[in-house]
């Protein structure tokens, strides 16, 4: 079991997953999300290849369309 801190709340993951897999599991379209992992802003290609380690702190900023 892995515990991460996502947007200030602790969240348990039953396996190692990438940032992108977490986004999808939360019902988010990764294209519309900015991710900061342990204080670093990830580039878009990193989402799929960056695993969430135990204790990681993740901030997700989701955008909705319209302007």
């Amino acid at each position: 079991m892995i515990t991460i801190f996502c947007n200030g709340e602790s969240r348990r993951l039953d396996r190692v997953m990438s940032v992108e897999e977490l986004m999808v599991s939360l019902g988010l379209n990764p294209e519309t999300v900015v991710a900061e992992l342990d204080g670093r802003i990830l580039s878009r290609p990193e989402y799929a290849v960056t695993p969430l380690a135990d204790g990681a702190t993740l901030e997700l900023i989701r955008f909705v369309g319209g302007g």
Binding site: N29, R44, F63
Partner: peptide
């Protein structure tokens, strides 16, 4: 929204 995220990133 994809460009909104891209721009902030």
């Amino acid at each position: 929204p994809a460009m909104k995220a891209a721009a902030l990133r």
